[in-house]
Simulated scan of single mutants.
Amino acid sequence: MQELFKIVSMKKRVLFVCLGNICRSPSAEAVFNSMLEDQGLQSEVECDSAGTTGYHAGEQADRRMQSHAIERGYRLTSISRPVDPDRDFDEFDYIIGMDDNNVWDLKKMARNLNDIRKIHKMTDFASTKGYESVPDPYYGGADGFELVLDILEDACEGLLADLKA
């Protein structure tokens, strides 16, 4: 299947987006990169993460999120940055918001219909339909960070299947 994927596709680029780019989107990037590596597809798909705001630009991921991710074998290495509509809509094939607000903000940043077609919500790729969005764990406790990782693992599997299809 991997050879078929390489033959019929060009390199795809995915941008994961949340509000501040310190919890959900860097986690999605790490989870997805891990899945790509496990399947030997890291040269076929590239991903990054960003925030709809620049509140945390230049910062590493939230330490609590990093801690929970490490327990599952993920390393959150990205540095927070805001979405750059002029660059990101040109460079990425999929721009994936973590919740309805992120998707709404991305649509407001879109320059044209082609940009809007690239915007998706993370949970649209999930096989378990128990959540409408990836909830922001920032103001909650440990359970919130674990829930984010649970949802992202499911949705990233679905996203990978979508990219292979």
Score class of each variant (00 low, 15 high):
residue 81 R to H: 10
residue 63 R to I: 01
residue 122 M to E: 04
residue 47 C to V: 06
residue 56 H to D: 07
residue 94 Y to C: 02
residue 119 I to C: 05
residue 115 D to S: 08
residue 103 V to K: 08
residue 111 R to A: 11
residue 61 A to N: 08
residue 65 M to V: 02
residue 77 T to Q: 14
residue 88 D to G: 06
residue 82 P to W: 00
residue 70 I to S: 13
residue 66 Q to A: 09
residue 110 A to Y: 00
residue 93 D to V: 05
residue 50 A to H: 05
residue 76 L to F: 03
residue 82 P to D: 01
residue 67 S to P: 02
residue 96 I to N: 04
residue 98 M to S: 08
residue 97 G to M: 00
residue 87 R to Y: 09
residue 55 Y to G: 02
residue 120 H to T: 02
residue 123 T to I: 00
residue 54 G to F: 01
residue 107 K to A: 13
residue 102 N to C: 06
residue 78 S to L: 03
residue 126 A to G: 12
residue 84 D to K: 14
residue 73 G to N: 09
residue 97 G to R: 00
residue 54 G to D: 14
residue 127 S to A: 14
residue 84 D to A: 11
residue 105 D to V: 09
residue 81 R to Q: 07
residue 127 S to T: 07
residue 117 R to S: 15
residue 79 I to T: 08
residue 114 N to W: 04
residue 56 H to M: 06
residue 96 I to W: 06
residue 64 R to F: 00
residue 78 S to W: 04
residue 78 S to V: 00
residue 55 Y to A: 10
residue 80 S to F: 01
residue 128 T to Q: 15
residue 128 T to I: 13
residue 91 E to V: 03
residue 95 I to P: 05
residue 89 F to S: 00
residue 48 D to A: 12
residue 87 R to S: 11
residue 67 S to R: 14
residue 75 R to C: 06
residue 120 H to D: 08
residue 53 T to K: 11
residue 47 C to R: 08
residue 116 I to D: 02
residue 62 D to Q: 02
residue 120 H to N: 12
residue 105 D to A: 15
residue 119 I to F: 07
residue 127 S to L: 12
residue 93 D to H: 14
residue 83 V to I: 04
residue 93 D to K: 06
residue 59 E to P: 10
residue 120 H to P: 04
residue 110 A to L: 10
residue 116 I to G: 05
residue 115 D to Y: 06
residue 106 L to G: 03
residue 108 K to R: 15
residue 66 Q to S: 11
residue 67 S to Y: 11
residue 59 E to L: 09
residue 71 E to D: 14
residue 57 A to M: 06
residue 127 S to D: 12
residue 98 M to D: 00
residue 62 D to A: 01
residue 114 N to T: 11
residue 128 T to C: 14
residue 115 D to H: 13
residue 64 R to W: 03
residue 121 K to P: 07
residue 119 I to P: 03
residue 129 K to A: 10
residue 95 I to R: 08
residue 125 F to A: 05
residue 104 W to Q: 14
residue 87 R to E: 03
residue 55 Y to I: 02
residue 113 L to H: 13
residue 122 M to V: 03
residue 90 D to I: 02
residue 105 D to G: 10
residue 114 N to R: 14
residue 129 K to T: 13
residue 112 N to A: 10
residue 109 M to R: 12
residue 98 M to I: 00
residue 90 D to A: 10
residue 100 D to Y: 10
residue 67 S to Q: 12
residue 123 T to G: 07
residue 102 N to W: 02
residue 95 I to L: 09
residue 77 T to S: 15
residue 65 M to D: 03
residue 81 R to L: 01
residue 79 I to Y: 06
residue 124 D to W: 04
